[in-house]
Design a protein around this nucleic acid. Structure first.
Lengths: 195, 195
DNA sequence: CGAAAATTTGACATGACTCAACTGGAGTGG
DNA sequence: CCACTCCAGTTGAGTCATGTCAAATTTTCG
């Protein structure tokens, strides 16, 4: 539970009471590789903090292809907020890409924190705002950059993820097929050898 | 200023003190068609509430093409949150598509409200969360649906915007060229005539 | 070690883009 | 009220980025 306290220290740090309130409500859980913490059709019940490991959240299209919306590794949050808030069946999956450890906060407990300690409204506001900014950049890139540029950018922005994730997953995140990413990578290394 | 009070009533309604605090700080401004309230390179200074009219926020790529990220019509907010928060030059433009009236809140005033009235943390958290959900759906669509499907979906989801905006703007929002949207529309009406 | 997944490669297909020309309103000024 | 310009929209021909499918090869992990 040290992780989560340190996490909030990056925003408005918590006092004793707040630390107790949040740590006593978060439930630790180990998740195996390929295990789901949310499946399409289920209602998302938790806001999940990743202590260790890595997850992807994705949707599946008519022809069965997966499209990764976000990755979440250590010290990050993941949840289908739409489903959590509106208590509607999710259209998404959240699946562990690596063996992972998480801390989960149920909707009820999250509400409890919000109503009793306004600081959580603040901290989660800022957390979501940062995620919003990221997503907006991503959408702009999807519209305005080629697959090559998006890949370069991914390598710069997430060097950590780039080395630890299979290219299949990265391709899906970039909105291209894994075959095409393979070709992109191929041309890329050619260029770097003959500058 | 009635609009903004009614707007917050959809979340946690404001009390007297909060209403005073916010209405005394928001500045009304008329904006002509094609006028900018944010230009690339500037630091975004305001959180803007649209009372009347309509705006687009867009980025421009290397070859000069515009890519619409969001529209904001009556009773909606618009701002480059990334630039506002981090006080970094924006990569985006916000431009009036129609003659408009807005209420603007400066970063300083917004901070004042956050620190003195936690309810604003709450309300803006919820507002941003809703925008996040929307953006996430949009990204998923961009990855998993054809231009035809995205257009159909836009018509359903924003019938209001669909009739009032020029197709050029809608095409940019969908991530396609206006020429291609024209072809999509053409085929679409053919189908509807021969069911 | 062995099965399952990831990666690469090539031939071919296609959705969406580019460019250029044309059409038809919507303003605007005389 | 006409003539003129100016955009938004349309259309067509040709092109390009990326997808599809299939097969061969390598890597991963249980």
């Amino acid at each position: 539970m040290n992780n989560i306290v340190a996490h909030f220290d990056k925003y408005l740090p918590l006092n004793e009471a707040e630390i107790n309130a949040v740590t006593s409500r978060m439930v630790e859980r180990k998740v195996k590789r390929k295990q789901y913490i949310l499946q399409e059709g289920d209602i998302c019940k938790y806001f999940t903090y990743v202590v260790e490991g890595c997850f992807k959240m994705y949707g599946v299209d008519n022809s069965g292809a997966e499209h990764n919306l976000v990755f979440a590794a250590e010290d990050d949050w993941i949840s289908d907020i739409g489903s959590l808030h509106k208590e509607k069946p999710s259209k998404l999956f959240i699946e562990a890409i690596e063996p992972s450890v998480v801390l989960q906060l149920s909707k009820g407990d999250l509400w409890y924190l919000y109503t009793n300690f306004p600081k959580f409204d603040r901290n989660f506001r800022v957390i979501i705002e940062d995620k919003y900014i990221e997503l907006q950049n991503r959408l702009l890139q999807a519209f305005s950059s080629s697959a090559h540029e998006r890949y370069e950018n991914f390598l710069e922005q997430y060097p950590n993820l780039a080395t630890r994730l299979p290219n299949t997953q990265i391709a899906s995140y970039l909105g291209i097929t894994s075959e095409f990413l393979s070709k992109v990578r191929n041309e890329r290394t050619k260029k770097h050898l003959h500058p």
